[in-house]
Design a protein around this nucleic acid. Structure first.
Lengths: 332, 332
DNA sequence: CTGCCTCGTGACAACGTTGTCAGGAACCAT
DNA sequence: ATGGTTCCTGACAACGTTGTCACGAGGCAG
């Protein structure tokens, strides 16, 4: 900036005025400074600028999601980004991979970077540590998983309802022995889905077989193995509820390996591209990813704009998408 | 920081020493300052710190990809992030959506933010504008699409080879009327894939039918329509090459609607989750997404580390993954 | 011609840090 | 006791900006 000022023969302040398009600079000075800027490839230092401007925003928000490459996280991030763009804000994105320490470290780093806001798909069980971070004035919005130990806005899916929709659908088609595959039960979403599966049974007066409910499955391959094991039982399940899309693909693979894709019913939580192209098409519980992302973004930018009402907790209802795999009847 | 110093009864500099874990502070002072930091929720201002430290890195890189929610972009970003993490660097990610203006604006913004480096999956035809930006010392690595009008590192896939592999595979299975669906031909990857499709034919002495080659298809639905139109020809194709995964799903849908999934061969560029679960499994040309991301990250951090050798251009070879859809023979 | 106002410009301080250097206290060897 | 170390600490300037204020030139009304 000093060089630009020298080259244009003006003061630092005048360069600042031109760069920030402030009024009150004569046309020829503006032109001279502009030429100097171009000649020297001058780029204002945003950090210094933000430092000086009292209480200015950094135009940066942090988004901590489970895994950037998973279609749910990526979809939420994408619609978040679209809204952020409209607010001239860039997005710092990171994957947590269910890492509790990483979550804390990243939040700390982002607060230190003075992000204007935080979007968090937490890996941790409780976020008490956030209380201190949020006292610094950085607003946070939780997504997919609700806050514990700290009061903050959240946007979550009604996982209990979603799991009920899926389970009732299978019960309605006559199934009484329904297997269920779930992620780690300490993850709130998995926990609620388990509860939904159970309560749908209870409401219908059906007692689920504990041996058919498997929790703590974290990979597609593991899901395949589990399904094979369940199908080997003396009294195998006639239907399967997959509590997560990656578990559904494991289940489909196991069924395919046994030629049972048209014999055993399957409903999955989470839609994914091409699910309708499977044969039979995969019946799923769909979460409106783009709506989730947009809602999160709106809430966050309201907070950034100074909104200080008590935290809001938005629950988004999932819907059942019928495609064939969930409508297979049990054997006569 | 002033408040912390006052509360602990020390100077600013001593607080700075404690916060940065510098040696030479007596244990009791260190403890007093630590307590004050905790009591006041003090967070150092990274921007101010970077401003003062001459030539310090911001620990920030920018990644401009085509679309965060597309599995290719997301996969590259994810492995990039993993390497960045090891370098204690955060990733600013944004989607360009083939927007040329947006690309320039984002690059400018990122340079202004003083990112340590830039990863670019360009939307523009030429990146002459980058020359000025790079003069500021910010290194850039291109990914998926090569630089034009500026000399910079790049990591691209051998699209010509990939398209040849797919086309030759179909020719080898006896197909002579192969339809092909491509994205906008001005996009370098699409352009090369078209060339690979053509050259494979030429090498085998087969003349492709121009009416079967459709360029400029940008959505799944459009691909479905195009395939229907092609199948309505008097002399319809016996095989289809989809130049991109979203075009493949349109093609699968069209074939499904006509009950031709087991009659017309199909090979796609780009693998995607569950492609093996389709019936028949989708034969694809696979790009090693994670290797691409890792290579890009390594090159970028070498540059950030001061490497100043001439730009390197890495070409990654795709492979054919055989799953069934590509091995369907033409009608006798 | 005087006084006042407007306009364009620059000097200066401040944003929150840290590098440099200097100074005082405590210790050791002479 | 003297001089020299070593250890701990603080004063000050500087990083690249911008908000505040002041100043001079020119224009206009009285």
């Amino acid at each position: 900036m000093r060089d630009v000022a020298a080259l244009a023969g003006v003061s630092l302040k005048t360069v600042s005025r031109v760069v920030n398009e402030e009024a009150g600079v004569s046309p020829d000075v503006r032109e001279r400074v502009g030429a100097a800027v171009r000649r020297l490839d001058y780029r204002p230092n945003l950090a210094a600028s933000n430092l000086r401007r009292t209480g200015a925003r950094t135009g940066l928000i942090g988004a901590l999601v489970q895994d950037l490459s998973n279609s749910f996280s990526a979809g939420v991030l994408r619609s978040l980004e679209d809204i952020a763009r409209a607010h001239r804000t860039a997005v710092l994105a990171a994957s947590l991979d269910e890492g509790v320490d990483r979550e804390q470290a990243m939040v700390h780093d982002l607060v230190t970077r003075r992000v204007d806001g935080l979007v968090l798909m937490p890996a941790s069980q409780r976020q008490d540590y956030l209380v201190a971070e949020l006292r610094t004035g950085t607003p946070a919005v939780f997504v997919d998983r609700p806050p514990r130990g700290v009061d903050a806005d959240s946007v979550v899916v009604d996982n209990l309802l979603g799991a009920r929709l899926a389970t009732e659908h299978l019960l309605d088609h006559g199934h009484r022995r329904i297997a269920a595959l779930f992620h780690l039960p300490q993850i709130p979403t998995a926990h609620e889905r388990i509860a939904g599966f159970t309560s749908a049974h209870t409401d219908r007066g059906v007692r689920p077989d504990d041996r058919l409910v498997v929790e703590g499955i974290t990979s597609t391959d593991e899901a395949t193995e589990v399904v094979h094991r369940l199908l080997d039982l003396d009294d195998p399940p006639t239907a399967i509820f997959a509590g997560r899309n990656i578990l559904a693909s494991g289940a489909v693979r196991a069924l395919a390996e046994r030629g049972l894709r048209r014999s055993v019913a399957l409903v999955s939580f989470d839609d994914f591209p091409m699910a309708d192209l499977l044969d039979p098409g995969l019946t799923v519980v769909r979460q409106d990813v783009s709506r989730i992302g947009r809602t999160v973004a709106q809430m966050l930018f309201e907070r950034i704009g100074g909104e200080s009402s008590p935290p809001r907790h938005v629950v988004i209802e999932p819907t059942l998408v019928v495609r064939g795999s969930g409508e297979i009847p049990p054997p006569a």
